[in-house]
Simulated assay, not measured.
Amino acid sequence: MRVRRVVTTRAGGASRPPYDTFNLGDHVGDDEGNVYANRKRLAAELGLAEDKLAWMEQVHGRTATIVDGSETRAAEATDALVTATPGVALVVLVADCVPILLADAEAGVVSAVHAGRVGTRVGVVPAALAAMREAGAEPHRIEALLGPAICGDCYEVPAEMAADVEKHVPGSACKTRKGTPGLDLRAGLWRQLADLGVGKIGVDPRCTNEDKTLFSYRRDGTTGRIAGITWVEA
């Protein structure tokens, strides 16, 4: 089966500053009509019907929800979506957190995961992998993409916070370019995925804080959201 993965940028949409222009988040204060226009364009660009995009109400937790495309609204209070239904595209929204796109092409199972600091710490990735296994996937066949996120050079946090995340997800703590305590979530997540037996792991190196073609909450405060999308072609 052919798996598709897409990561958007902030270019080409209908939203006005500070959400300019391709904001896909409907929870950040942007005009609803502009968000709808952007989501409609996303579906058209992907060659999918609008009702084949599966959204989630992200809450920085560790709940993983299996969907099949029959849902009529965003999955409530979840930070990972899993499907074994071809043609259903799973969407994760971020503006510094790590979007993770997972796929077992042989089983036809994909997952989109929202991994911020809290979700990473409490285990959203193991939860997503468990749900994928429930749907028929096997870790050694899974390919993972860690998408654009704030990098360790930029993500300054209190020393206690860095140590706490490091305790739960080893490899996450780092020093920023200023020499202060920081977090490199993608480094910790890469190690966690490898330790959980995931076969192939790729990283999009772009930093949302540094790259102004991407949205960054740390940089801008009020801002939009880019998306990571994955699906199995029908």
Rank of each mutant, 00 (worst) to 15 (best):
E134D: 13
G116P: 02
R10Q: 05
G136A: 01
L214M: 13
L193I: 07
G179L: 02
G108M: 01
P170Y: 14
T230G: 00
V92T: 15
V232L: 09
W55H: 09
L193A: 12
A144F: 00
A75C: 04
L183C: 02
V98D: 07
V118R: 05
Y19C: 03
I226A: 09
V94C: 08
D204P: 13
R39Q: 09
V198S: 01
H168W: 12
V59G: 06
E210S: 12
A112F: 15
P158F: 14
V82A: 10
D211S: 06
V7E: 13
C207N: 07
G136M: 02
K212M: 07
E134S: 10
A14V: 09
G197S: 13
N38M: 09
M161T: 15
A234H: 07
E210V: 15
L193W: 03
D79Q: 12
G69S: 06
Y155N: 07
V125W: 02
A54S: 15
G13C: 05
E45K: 14
A131N: 11
T72A: 06
V232D: 10
T63R: 15
P17C: 06
F215M: 14
T223H: 03
V94E: 03
D195A: 15
D20P: 05
A37Y: 03
E143V: 14
G199A: 11
G33H: 06
D220I: 11
D204M: 12
D104A: 01
T65K: 12
A194E: 12
T85V: 08
A64C: 10
G116A: 02
V124F: 02
A194H: 09
L146N: 01
L183M: 03
A11H: 04
A159E: 15
L24W: 01
V109Y: 10
L193K: 10
G224L: 03
A115C: 08
P18A: 08
G147H: 11
P158A: 12
V165T: 08
A227Y: 01
S15C: 14
M161L: 14
D164S: 15
A234Y: 06
S111V: 11
T63D: 03
L146Q: 01
A159C: 08
W55C: 03
G136F: 08
H60N: 08
A11S: 04
A149E: 08
K200Y: 11
V198D: 00
G123W: 11
G228E: 05
A227E: 01
A84D: 13
